[in-house]
Design a binder for these strands. Structure first.
Ligand SMILES: [Mn+2]
Ligand SMILES: [Mn+2]
Ligand SMILES: [Mn+2]
Ligand SMILES: [Mn+2]
Lengths: 220, 220
DNA sequence: TTAGTGATTTAGGTATATCTAAATAAATAT
DNA sequence: ATATTTATTTAGATATACCTAAATCACTAA
């Protein structure tokens, strides 16, 4: 049976998520940026992950995650997101405060711990950022969702997730009053810079840049 | 500010607990046995802990923990015991199943996490094995307690802790029906081998060896 | 089609945490 | 008081996970 270290789990999760985002092979530099380590360290790690056959690694041509690798990555992601739910729902963490702690908790090794946590939380399907929680077999049920900037004028929907989970972005959303579950309607799209005005819960209007809008995901 | 690695935290906790048990300096071999590492590895670690001034280390003469070291050890112990309470109270772990998992969870770095966990658990004062949980300043309020074999015939009391927290011992206690909180009365002490018969909750009698009795702590 | 640039890997180094085997200090027994 | 035993440390290795600097590969632009 393959065993992964904490560092290997972190890299593999990053590789999985980068490959989901981009579809094609993931580059050393992308991983380096995501992991905040130097490209040289990434090359080292890719060799090791290749040997463990959780990625397919061709020098100079980026990596692809294997089926086996996906299973490991999804297991880590499941743990991360369950712990995020725990921190928010049970320990009253804000959604911008969970990243660091969940990034440690996700490495605790215990199958029963995760099963029990899942049960204790009521088998949540989504984490505090709207991201789907894989089940124990690695199945992810993802909802169809669109960034706000791709919604037509007068189109309506419900905020279901954020693409960027950085503390800075999340705190900004808190400040302007955008949150998961909010019902929105697109009131105006400025041709010039793509900025957008939305109505939240039929009460409040929010102006946002195209950049912000692109990071808020809505179910129509 | 001193930073300790996971391994250093584990060693320091072991050293603290061994020195509490024995009072005098702790030997390399004792630590080696407790940590399940070789004496050579312990020597290495002692040098490092000495440099960080959490222990006082004189080669060949064992170690003493410093005041600074005690603070760190008690912080780790606090975290371990709070997580043990969480696992038992919230996730329905048995008291013999928590050791391994809590031994990982105790290393998660987040002051707020522990404060919130403490609050969430209702500020418990004792862990599932009856051991006191230090407060956030490292103060431990320990109850006076005696091993059953030191109680006189017809003496009564309440089981408040176990000295040995190994899964084997705890499962044995489950089997014979001894548990934290049980009210007991010493019915007989066999002169020959020190074995003891007790009455539990005025209902059930249990025979136990002196060895077992010595590991069950009672408040009189 | 080749020179140059940027991406990537390799080489060599540090720090942590372990090990085995050898050396040495301390404790014990004769 | 010395020899033997036991405890402990040191020496030298391995494995992980990083780093910087140098080398090398791949792609692109002339
Ligand atoms: Mn992580
Ligand atoms: Mn999340
Ligand atoms: Mn531990
Ligand atoms: Mn305990």
């Amino acid at each position: 049976m393959i065993k992964l270290t904490h560092a290997e789990e972190n890299y593999l999760k990053a590789i999985y998520q980068l490959s989901e985002a981009g579809k094609k092979g993931v580059s050393t530099n992308d991983i380096s940026a995501e992991m905040k380590t130097k490209p040289a360290s990434v090359s080292d790690m890719l060799r090791k992950l290749g040997e463990k056959e959780v990625i397919e690694y061709r020098k100079y041509y980026g990596v692809h995650i294997t089926e086996e690798g996906k299973k490991f990555a999804l297991r880590t992601i499941r743990k991360q997101r369950l712990w995020e739910v725990f921190l928010v729902e049970k320990l009253r963490f804000a959604w911008d405060e969970v990243a660091e702690v969940a990034d440690e908790l996700e490495h605790v090794q215990s199958t029963i711990l995760i099963q029990r946590l899942d049960e204790y939380l009521g088998f949540p399907k989504f984490d505090p950022h709207g991201d789907p929680i894989p089940d124990e077999y690695g199945d992810v049920r993802s909802r169809p969702r669109l960034p706000i900037n791709e919604i037509d004028i007068n189109g309506t929907g419900q905020i279901v997730a954020v693409k960027d989970s950085s503390a800075a972005f999340l705190r900004y959303l808190d400040k302007v009053g955008a949150y998961i579950g909010a019902r929105i309607k697109v009131l105006e799209k400025v041709e010039f810079d793509g900025s957008i005005e939305i109505l939240v819960d039929n009460k409040k209007t929010i102006f946002m840049s195209k950049d912000v809008a692109a990071n808020i995901l809505v179910m129509v």
